[in-house]
Structures are given as C-alpha cells and as structure tokens.
Amino acid sequence: MNQNGHRLDYALHMENRRNFPRDELNRFIGKHIAFSFDGSRIVASGEDLRELEANLVAAGIDPSRVVFDYVDPPDLVIL
C-alpha cells in the first residue's frame, strides 16, 4: 500500500498487530485508536473518530499515516 508516498508494510503491520500485547490493548476498550503503520504502537485514541483525529493532529501525527481501529468491549456479542 502506497498512498501519498506513505508505505504500509502489510505483513509487518499484521504480524505486529496480531502480537500486540493484550494488556496494552485492554487500556483502550471501547475507544477508537490509531495504530502506527508498522502496527507496533497505538499512537492516539479517542471516544470517537472526531476526537481521535483531533488527538492525532494535536500530537503532530498525520492521520493519513496511521491505521484507524476500534477496541471492542470483550464481553459484547456483535450482531
């Protein structure tokens, strides 16, 4: 993936994403998060996408250089 000159290494991202520490992820339950392109870090979070993006910008992080995700509450069944 190469957008605006930014490259996402899919294999690396997914490997790091799958091995991401559960305890660390649990800190963000119910929140929208942004992963670094390599999937090794959560660089910002927010209650919704708007807040997440604002937090990214406030931290000087380009929103087009992260991968947005959401941390599902672990006890919820998704229909």
Binding site: N4, L8, P63, V67, F68, D69, Y70
Partner: peptide, 9 residues
C-alpha cells in the same frame, strides 16, 4: 482528499 486507512468488518 487525503485517504484514510482503517479496519472494517
């Protein structure tokens, strides 16, 4: 505009 990368279901 600027593309966004995110996880979808």
């Amino acid at each position: 505009g600027v593309p966004i990368l995110l996880y979808g279901r």
